[in-house]
Every structure is written in structure tokens, then in C-alpha cells.
């Protein structure tokens, strides 16, 4: 096969893979809206979605319509958006920080969000004018600002950024623990704990309307910088020598991903492992080139988070686990498996 045809067929294969992933994602969402305390036949779920989205006139019960439309569909779509955003952020940060352990919360965003959330929920800061999500968002940005200031004051190299993130995370986590330990009653502590572990219950269309555009734009920006990210493989100097304006690329990508994660963490709390594991799994499927890796990461992140949300609702009968517990329970062994495979491959 001549090189052009080979490239063409590889691109076609890539598009096919994305197509398959999209179908799997839609299937996952369909299952996600059907399972739960009240299980609804998949056919009925499809009819409801078709009525609402395509304007068809199938006969379905009002309760079923309400459950699917008001609660489950927004939640399933949010899970997809959440997974896509966290996973692509992990992939981008792993490349920019040249560290395979980088993940969306490495810059202190989740620690800051937690402090912000408990300050609102337990200390009653803002006297009701700021919602829990609003407080978490402000906390996340505050932590990010401290990390950025600390990292740039210490030279701005990748290791310094990571160290700054660790230090600031520890500090904000201590603040969170301090507030919970000194000021919370048992009921509040349980509520905060639920949020800290990452939780999708209570996600509504308004949350999706807030998060989806941010995630869409941020993912788009990451995809536009796919080739620049490839050039970072041998470090920032090598990228610069390949004509990449590294300061600008870093500012854009850190900014986009941080905004995205701040919005997501403020709505759901910390959902671990998706941002760490999915990029590594996607690298096995799509290779290290970001033009293929990032779409694969986005789709895989969305699918796995929707599946994790389904599991969180069916693992324990009559009870919904925080999704962060499920992603960690399944993510940790998955990561271990990837590590062992990587060792055998090398």
C-alpha cells in the first residue's frame, strides 16, 4: 500500500473507532436511564427520549416520562460530560507536566473546591447567597491561583508545578478537615462526605447547561493543540525548538482544563481515577499521538463514567453509592493491570 493510502485507511479506522465508541456511549446512556430504583424497560426509555428529542407521540406513563427526563437523562448526560472532561484533562496534564501520575486534581482544584464547599455548607459563609457549587468553584479557583503563584515563584518547571499542587492540596485538605472536625454535626459531616467522594445525585439540566458548553469548548481547544502536545514529548525546550510557542500553549491548555475541572468539581465533588486511568488505557488503544489519543480519551472517559454511574446505582440494592467510590474501586485494579502490562511490554 502506498503511504497516502495507508494514512487514509488509518484515518478511516480512527473515525470508525470513534463511531463505534459513540454507539457504545448511546447504548450506555440508554441503559443508564432505564436502571435505578424504578426500573423502566429500555423500549420505554427510548420512546421517552424520542418523544422529547424528536417530537414523536408514543404513549408513555407520566411518571416514567418524568423520571427519565427530569432525573435520569440529565444525570447520564452529565456523567458522560464529566468523564470526557476529566479524562481529557488527565491526558493533557500528563503530557504538559511530563508525569504519568498527573491527573485533573493535581493542581489543587479538588482540595480548593472541598474547602470552599464546606465553608459554605458548614460555616455558613456567604449567608445563603452563595450555593454549595458556587463556594466550591470559588475555592477551586483560589487554590489554583495559589498553585500558579507558588509554581511561578519557584521557577515554573514541571516538577515545581506538581510540588506546588501537592503542597496547596495538603493545605486546603487540612482546612477542610479542620472545619469538618470542629464545626460539623454528624448530619453535616455525612452530607459533606458524600459530596467529597464525588456524587452525581441531584444533577439537573441546569447543571448540564452550565458544564456542557465549558467542557465542549475546553475539549475543542485541547484537540486544536494536539500537534503541539505531541511536540512536548521531549520536554518544553524540544517543543520550542519545533516552533511551538510553549508559554502560550501552556497558558491556554492549563486555563481551559482548569476552568473545566473547576466547574465539574463544584457540581459533583471529586471523582477520582477517571482522569488518571483513562488516558493510560486510551494510549494502549490509540497510541501516543494526541490527534488520536485525545478523541479516544474523551470517548472512553465518557463511556466509563456512564458505566460507573450505572454501577453506583445497582451495586448495592436500594442504595446509591457515590460515583467516586465506584471509579476508585474499579479504577485502582485497572491501573494496576495497565502497569503490569506496561512492564511486560517493555
Amino acid at each position: 500500500m502506498d503511504p497516502a493510502a495507508r494514512i487514509g485507511s488509518r484515518q478511516a479506522a480512527g473515525f470508525n473507532l470513534i463511531g463505534v465508541a459513540a454507539i457504545v456511549l448511546l447504548l450506555g446512556i440508554t441503559v443508564a436511564v432505564s436502571v435505578g430504583e424504578m426500573s423502566i424497560p429500555i423500549g420505554t426509555s427510548l420512546q421517552v427520549m424520542s418523544n422529547r428529542l424528536l417530537g414523536t407521540g408514543y404513549e408513555v406513563g407520566r411518571i416514567q416520562d418524568g423520571i427519565i427526563w427530569e432525573y435520569r437523562l440529565s444525570r447520564a448526560l452529565f456523567a458522560a460530560v464529566l468523564g470526557a472532561g476529566l479524562a481529557v484533562t488527565g491526558a493533557v496534564l500528563q503530557t504538559l507536566l511530563r508525569n504519568p501520575l498527573a491527573e485533573p486534581y493535581v493542581l489543587g482544584l479538588s482540595a480548593g473546591a472541598s474547602s470552599g464547599a464546606v465553608a459554605i455548607a458548614i460555616l455558613g459563609l456567604g449567608a445563603g447567597a452563595i450555593s454549595l457549587s458556587g463556594g466550591a468553584f470559588i475555592g477551586a479557583l483560589l487554590a489554583l491561583a495559589v498553585v500558579a503563584a507558588l509554581a511561578s515563584a519557584s521557577g515554573g518547571s514541571a516538577e515545581r508545578v506538581i510540588l506546588a499542587g501537592i503542597v496547596v492540596s495538603q493545605l486546603f485538605n487540612a482546612v477542610t478537615s479542620y472545619i469538618v472536625a470542629t464545626a460539623a454535626n454528624a448530619e453535616q459531616a455525612r452530607g459533606v462526605m458524600f459530596w467529597l467522594l464525588g456524587n452525581l445525585s441531584g444533577v439537573r439540566w441546569t447543571d448540564l447547561a452550565l458544564a456542557a458548553p465549558v467542557v465542549l469548548v475546553a475539549c475543542g481547544m485541547c484537540l486544536l493543540h494536539a500537534r503541539a502536545l505531541d511536540a512536548f514529548a521531549f520536554g518544553p525546550d524540544a517543543a520550542m525548538a519545533l516552533g511551538i510557542r510553549i508559554a502560550r500553549v501552556r497558558a491556554v491548555l492549563f486555563g481551559c482544563t482548569a476552568a473545566m475541572v473547576a466547574v465539574l468539581v463544584s457540581i459533583t465533588g471529586t471523582v477520582g481515577f477517571i482522569g488518571l486511568v483513562v488516558p493510560h488505557a486510551a494510549r494502549f488503544l490509540a497510541g501516543p499521538g494526541h490527534a488520536r489519543l485525545l478523541p479516544a480519551t474523551i470517548m472512553l472517559g465518557a463511556i466509563l463514567t456512564v458505566v460507573a454511574d450505572i454501577l453506583s446505582r445497582i451495586l448495592v440494592p436500594q442504595q446509591t453509592l457515590p460515583i467516586g467510590v465506584v471509579t476508585a474501586l474499579f479504577g485502582a485494579p485497572a491501573f494496576a493491570a495497565i502497569l503490569c502490562r506496561a512492564r511486560r511490554a517493555s
Binding site: 505531541d230 514529548a233 521531549f234 525548538a241 519545533l242 494510549r283 499521538g289
Partner: peptide, 26 residues
């Protein structure tokens, strides 16, 4: 202008072909 520095290192699972193709980025 192209530059070859003394020690190039990467964590990414790139092949020789991936590395050489980086030269076409600019």
C-alpha cells in the same frame, strides 16, 4: 534552524517513526 540537544528523554511510548515525524511539526 534544527537543534539536537545532548540528552533527549521522554516518558511517552513513542516509536522511532513518531520521533522523526516530529521534525515535520513546524
Amino acid at each position: 534552524v534544527a537543534m539536537v540537544e545532548q540528552q533527549a528523554a521522554t516518558e511517552a511510548p513513542v516509536t522511532v517513526l513518531d520521533v522523526v515525524r516530529l521534525g515535520r511539526v513546524p
